[in-house]
Design a protein around this nucleic acid. Structure first.
Length: 953
RNA sequence: GCCCUCGUAGCCCAAUUGGCAGAGGCAGGCGACUUAAAAUCGCCGCAGUGCGGGUUCGAACCCCGUCGAGGGCACCA
C-alpha cells in the first residue's frame, strides 16, 4: 500500500476534508449554544432591555421544499442574506434572521394522488432534506423561529387572519377597513343604505346576512373558472393550452360559473399603488406592480343609439373626434336588444361575415367567440375578427353616426365591455379598421417621419377636432382630455373615471393539500366564521386525495373537492353562541399564497401561542421609524431587507401587502407595509449542451477545445452545441451544493457564490472557477497557521506603514460593500489584503485579526476556527466590526493626471492637499506638457485638485 | 407586440457614479522549488467598453437610434 499521495499534502493544510471537520464542529457548537437565537422585547422569548437595542430584520423569500432538492442556484440569496445578517451582528444590531417553508401545494398533492402517500409525509421528508442541505452551508438562522405553513400551530393563525378579513368591510368614506359590526350599525341607523334601499329592520335574517356579505373583504361569488371534469378540478389560465386542453392530461376545459371565495383586493387598489412611493424597492418591480394594478384615468362616455345608449370607457377622450366606429364585446348585453332584422343601408360586404341578416351574423359570431377560451381569444394571433351589428350610434361630441361592431378583441371584463374605436391613434383599432374597410381620421398631429400606414400613439397637438361647442385644435393631449371631460360633464353625456386592471383575488381551491377555510354554513346556507377558540380547523384524513373526476366531456358536472369526501368532518355540531346546531363545513381550501401572506409577522413571535403576534414584538421588529426606517419621513415600517426572485414581483408581493394593510387597518400591526426594502437577486444559470439530435448531454462531461480560433465543445468525441439558461434535471446540467461542499467545503462554496458577480445580476455557474475561492481561504489559513506543524504563524510586531494603510482602506471599503450588498467587491478587497500578507514571514496579529473578522460573515466556520486558534474564547459572531482610522485612509500624495483635451499626456506626484492654483502652475510647467502644448493657445484649464488637470487648447 | 435588466480582456467581473479603462478570480504563458509531477510562490494584460450618432474640456457611465442575451406581461380601450 502506498502512502505517497498522502505524504505529499502537509498535515495541516486547509483541504476540503479539514474544512468539512471544522464546519461540522462549528455548526454543532452554534446549535448547542444557541448562538443565533435572538431575543424579543416581550412574549415567550422576551428579555429585559431588548426594546432599547437597535434591530434589523433580514429575510429571504419562503422556500418551497420540492422533491428535487437544492441546486447551486437556490442558496445564492440565502448565503447573501446570511452574510449580511452576520455583518449586521458585528455592528451591534439585534438581528432577526430565520427561514421557513411554504409547504402546501400541488406537487405533493399530485404525488399523493399517484402513490397514495400522504402529502404530509412526502412534504416533511422533503423539508428534512432541505434542512440538512442548508445546515451544511452554515446559515445563521434562529432555529426556534423556523416555521412551516403546514403546521397546525401556524395555519391556525392563517385561518384566524382569514376570519378577521371575513369580518371586515372597506369603508370608502374613511379609506380603510373596519369591523363588520360597524357596517351592521351603519345599516341599522340608516347611515349607509342597504343594497335595495329598504330599511334594515324590514330585511329577513338571510337578507341581512346577504347585505353584509356583499361588502365583506372575503366573500363568495359566482365567477367563471376553467372547469376540467376529466381532472375533477378547476385549473388556472396558465395550465390551459392553446387547444383548450389541460396541460396535464390533455383534458377538455369548460368555462363555468362556480361559487368561489374571493378577496376584495380591489378596495385597496389606490393604496397599493400609492404606497409604492413609500417603500425602497427596485423601480422595475414598482413598475410591474403599478402596471398590474393598472390604474388609468379616462372617461366614461355615452353614445346614444336609438332609445338605448352604449357606454364606453376610454383613456383617450381627447381623440373623440377620431372615433369612426364602435366595438362591443360578444358578451355585451345590449346585443340582445338592439340588433335589427335587416342590414341597413351603407352596410359594406366585408362587415356582414357573409350572413343574410345582422341577427344571424351576430349570433353566429357570439357562438364562435363563446367556444374560445380566454386564453385562445388572447393568443389567437393578431388577426382581428368581428361583424357589424347593423346599428349606428351617435358620437355625443362630434355628432357623427358611427357603425357598431361586435368583436372579441374587446373584453367584457374590462371597462364597460365597449369601446369607441379610434383607428388613427390606437393600433388595435387600426388593425380592425384595415380588416373591415373602415375610415380613420387623425386627431393628433403625428411626429415628423411617422409611417402614414400606422396608428400614431405619441405626443402631439390636436387637429381636426373642433365644432361650435368645443375646439381642441392646437392643444396638447392632456389639456384636450380635460376639455372633453368638462364638456361631457356639462352636457351630461359622460364623466371622468378611474378604472383598474386589478381584479378581486380568487381565493378558493378545490384541493386537499391546503389550509381548510374556517367557515361553516348553517341550514339557511349562511356562512359563519369559526370562532378563534375553535381554531385550527385541522385538515381531516381522507382515503383518497384526488377530487371526484367525471367524463372529460361532461360540461354540466360540478366539482367535488377532496374534503367533501370526509363526511364526518363536513357535518359538524357547533355552538356558535346560540346553542349547539348542525353546520356544514366549507370544503374548499386556501391557495398556496395564503401562508406566505403574513409569515414575516409570525417570524417575529413564532413561539407565541396566545396571539398571532404580540403587538410590542411587532412594533419592535417591524414598526415604522425603526431599523432602516430610522429617520425616514413617512416611514411604512416592515422588514428591513427582503430578498427574493423576480418571479414573485407581482402576485406574492401584492397579496402580502394587501393582507398587511388589512391587519394594519384593523389595528393588529403598527407597520403599513410588510417589506420596507426589497432586493431582487439574479439567478445562477448554467450552460447546457445538446448533441446533433438535440438531446441534452451531461454538461459536466463536455470538453472544451480551441478550433480555428474559436471555442468548440465535444462530448465523448462528438461535437455538441452550447446554450445558456436555467439549471435543470432535464438539461443534465445540475450542480448541487452537496457536491461543492464535498469537494471544496462550505466556506469555499459560500465565498465563490458571493464573488461571482453582483447579487442582482444573473451569471453562469462555472465549477472550474471555484478553486480560486479555495486558494484564497487556503492562503488565509496559511497566513495564520503553519501547514506543517499547525502552529500559529502570527507575530506581535507592529505592521509596516503600507500594510497598515491597506488594512484601513480595506476596512473602510469592505464595510461599505457589506452595507450595499456588494459582496463580490468585498471579497476582492479581502483577497488583496490577504495577498499582501502572504509575502510576510510572520504576519502581524494587528492585521490578521481584523482580516479574520472581516472574512467571518463570508466564511464563518473558517473565521471561528482561526479566531479560536488566535486565542479567543467566545464566538467571533458578535465581535464588533473593525473600525477604519480616517487618518490612515487619506494618502499623503496622489498621482495627478494631466490631460490635453481629455487625453492623458503626463502624470505628477503631488501632495493630497495641494491647492488648485499650485497644481495648475505645476502641471503647465512639466516638460512633456510644455512640449505637447508648444505654441498653441491655451483656452481653458480645468483643475480638479488633486487628481486631474485638463488643458484645452 | 409592450415593459424591465444587462452587453468591458478567451471567461466571470471591477472602475470612488462624468475624470488615468483594471481591483479580484478562472483559463493561459514564463520562471523558482522538485530527479519528475502535483501543490505552492513570483512575474506576465494594446480589450478601448456590442454597433452608429449626439451632448461635454472630458463618456464604459448621460441622451437618441440600432443589434444581441436574459426575465416579466400580454388584444386593459
Amino acid at each position: 500500500m502506498s502512502t505517497q499521495h498522502n505524504d505529499a499534502i502537509p498535515p495541516h493544510r486547509y483541504t476540503a476534508a479539514l474544512a468539512g471537520q471544522i464546519e461540522q464542529r462549528w455548526q454543532d457548537r452554534w446549535e448547542e449554544e444557541g448562538t443565533f437565537e435572538v431575543p424579543n422585547p416581550a412574549g415567550p422569548w422576551g428579555e429585559p432591555g431588548v426594546a432599547e437595542r437597535p434591530k434589523r430584520m433580514v429575510q429571504d423569500m419562503f422556500s418551497y421544499p420540492s422533491g428535487a432538492g437544492l441546486h447551486v442556484g437556490h442558496p445564492l440569496p440565502y448565503i447573501a442574506t446570511d452574510t449580511y445578517a452576520r455583518y449586521l451582528r458585528t455592528t451591534g444590531a439585534n438581528v432577526l434572521f430565520t427561514q421557513g417553508f411554504d409547504a402546501f401545494g400541488l406537487p405533493a398533492e399530485q404525488f399523493a394522488v399517484k402513490t397514495g402517500q400522504h402529502p404530509r409525509k412526502t412534504t416533511e421528508e422533503n423539508i428534512a432534506v432541505f434542512k440538512r442541505q442548508l445546515r451544511r452551508l452554515g446559515l445563521s438562522y434562529d432555529q426556534r423561529r423556523r416555521i412551516s405553513t403546514i403546521d397546525p400551530s401556524y395555519y391556525r393563525w392563517t385561518q384566524w387572519i382569514f376570519t378577521k378579513i371575513f369580518d371586515a368591510w372597506y369603508d370608502e368614506r374613511t379609506g380603510r377597513a373596519r369591523h363588520i359590526d360597524d357596517l351592521v350599525a351603519a345599516y341599522a341607523s340608516g347611515e349607509l343604505p342597504t343594497p335595495d334601499g329598504r330599511p334594515w329592520a324590514e330585511l329577513s335574517r338571510v337578507e341581512q346576512a346577504d347585505a353584509v356579505d356583499q361588502r365583506r373583504l372575503a366573500y363568495k361569488r359566482e365567477v367563471p373558472v376553467n372547469w376540467a371534469p376529466g381532472l375533477g378540478t378547476v385549473v388556472a389560465n396558465e395550465e390551459v393550452t392553446n387547444e383548450g386542453l389541460t396541460e396535464r392530461g390533455d383534458m377538455p376545459v369548460f368555462r363555468r360559473n362556480l361559487a368561489q371565495w374571493m378577496m376584495r383586493i380591489t378596495a385597496y387598489a389606490d393604496r397599493l399603488a400609492d404606497d409604492l412611493d413609500r417603500v425602497e424597492w427596485p423601480e422595475s418591480i414598482k413598475t410591474m406592480q403599478r402596471n398590474w394594478i393598472g390604474r388609468s384615468h379616462g372617461a366614461a362616455i355615452r353614445f346614444p343609439l336609438g332609445d338605448n345608449e352604449i357606454e364606453v370607457f376610454t383613456t383617450r377622450p381627447d381623440t373623440i373626434f377620431g372615433a369612426t366606429f364602435m366595438v362591443v364585446a360578444p358578451e355585451h348585453p345590449l346585443l340582445d336588444q338592439v340588433v335589427p332584422q335587416e342590414w341597413p343601408e351603407g352596410t359594406k360586404d366585408a362587415w356582414t361575415g357573409g350572413a343574410a341578416s345582422p341577427k344571424e351574423a351576430v349570433s353566429a359570431y357570439r357562438l364562435q367567440a363563446s367556444r374560445k377560451s380566454d386564453l385562445e381569444r388572447q393568443t389567437d394571433d393578431k388577426a382581428k375578427t368581428g361583424v357589424f351589428t347593423g346599428v349606428f350610434a351617435t358620437n355625443p361630441v362630434s355628432g357623427a353616426q358611427v357603425p357598431v361592431f361586435v368583436a372579441d378583441y374587446v373584453l367584457m371584463g374590462y371597462g364597460t365591455g365597449a369601446i369607441m374605436a379610434v383607428p388613427a391613434e390606437d393600433p388595435r383599432d387600426w388593425d380592425f379598421a384595415k380588416a373591415y374597410d373602415l375610415p380613420y381620421l387623425r386627431t393628433v398631429q403625428p411626429a415628423e417621419g411617422h409611417d402614414e400606414d400606422r396608428a400614431y400613439t405619441g405626443p402631439g397637438v390636436m387637429i381636426n377636432s373642433d365644432n361650435e361647442r368645443i375646439s381642441l385644435n392646437g392643444k396638447e393631449i392632456d389639456q384636450a382630455k380635460a376639455d372633453v371631460i368638462a364638456l361631457l360633464e356639462r352636457e351630461g353625456t359622460g364623466r371622468g373615471t378611474i378604472t383598474y386592471k386589478l381584479r378581486d383575488w380568487l381565493f378558493s381551491r378545490q384541493r386537499y393539500w391546503g389550509e381548510p377555510f374556517p367557515i361553516v354554513y348553517d341550514e339557511d346556507g349562511v356562512a359563519h366564521a369559526v370562532p378563534a377558540s375553535m381554531l385550527p380547523v385541522e385538515l381531516p384524513e381522507v382515503a383518497d386525495y384526488s377530487p371526484k373526476t367525471y367524463d372529460p366531456r361532461d360540461a354540466a358536472s360540478t366539482p367535488q373537492a377532496p374534503l367533501s369526501r370526509a363526511e364526518d368532518w363536513v357535518e359538524v355540531e357547533l355552538d356558535l353562541g346560540d346553542g349547539p346546531k348542525k353546520y356544514r363545513r366549507e370544503t374548499d381550501t386556501m391557495p398556496n399564497w395564503a401562508g406566505s401572506c403574513w409569515y414575516e409577522i409570525r417570524y417575529t413571535d413564532a413561539g407565541n401561542h396566545e396571539v398571532f403576534v404580540d403587538p410590542e414584538v411587532e412594533r419592535y421588529w417591524m414598526g415604522p421609524g425603526r431599523g432602516e426606517g430610522e429617520g425616514r419621513a413617512n416611514d411604512t415600517g416592515g422588514v428591513d431587507l427582503y430578498i427574493g426572485g423576480a418571479e414573485h414581483a407581482v402576485l406574492h408581493l401584492l397579496y402580502a401587502r394587501f393582507w398587511h394593510k388589512v391587519l394594519f387597518d384593523l389595528g393588529y400591526v403598527s407597520s403599513e407595509e410588510p417589506f420596507r426594502r426589497l432586493f431582487i437577486h439574479g439567478y445562477v444559470q448554467a450552460y447546457a449542451f445538446r448533441d446533433d439530435r438535440g438531446q441534452p448531454v451531461p454538461a459536466a462531461e463536455v470538453q472544451e477545445h480551441e478550433e480555428a480560433g474559436r471555442t468548440a465543445y465535444t462530448w465523448q468525441g462528438q461535437p455538441v452545441t452550447r446554450e445558456y439558461g436555467k439549471m435543470g434535471k432535464s438539461l443534465k446540467n445540475v450542480v448541487t451544493p452537496d457536491e461543492m461542499c464535498e469537494e471544496y467545503g462550505a466556506d469555499t462554496f459560500r465565498v465563490y457564490e458571493m464573488s461571482m458577480g453582483p447579487l442582482d445580476q444573473s451569471r453562469p455557474w462555472e465549477t472550474r472557477a471555484v478553486v480560486g475561492s479555495q486558494r484564497f481561504l487556503q492562503r488565509l489559513w496559511r497566513n495564520v497557521i503553519d501547514e506543517e506543524t499547525g502552529a500559529l504563524r502570527v507575530s506581535d510586531a507592529a505592521p509596516d506603514e503600507a500594510t497598515l494603510r491597506l488594512l484601513h482602506k480595506t476596512i473602510d471599503g469592505v464595510r461599505r460593500d457589506f452595507e450595499s450588498l456588494g459582496f463580490n467587491t468585498a471579497v476582492a478587497k479581502l483577497i488583496e489584503l490577504n495577498n499582501a500578507l502572504t509575502r510576510s514571514e510572520a504576519p502581524p496579529r494587528a492585521v490578521v485579526e481584523p482580516l479574520v473578522q472581516m472574512v467571518s460573515p463570508l466564511a464563518p466556520h473558517l473565521a471561528e476556527e482561526l479566531w479560536e486558534r488566535l486565542g479567543h474564547n467566545g464566538s467571533i459572531a458578535y465581535e464588533p466590526f473593525p473600525e477604519a482610522d480616517p487618518a490612515l485612509l487619506a494618502d499623503d500624495t496622489v498621482t495627478c493626471v494631466i490631460q490635453i483635451k481629455g487625453k492623458v499626456r503626463d502624470r505628477l506626484e503631488v501632495a493630497a492637499d495641494i491647492s488648485a492654483a499650485d497644481l495648475e502652475t505645476q502641471a503647465l510647467a512639466t516638460e512633456k506638457i510644455k512640449a505637447a502644448v508648444g505654441d498653441q493657445v491655451i483656452r481653458k484649464v480645468i483643475v480638479r485638485a488633486p487628481k486631474l488637470v485638463n488643458i484645452v487648447v
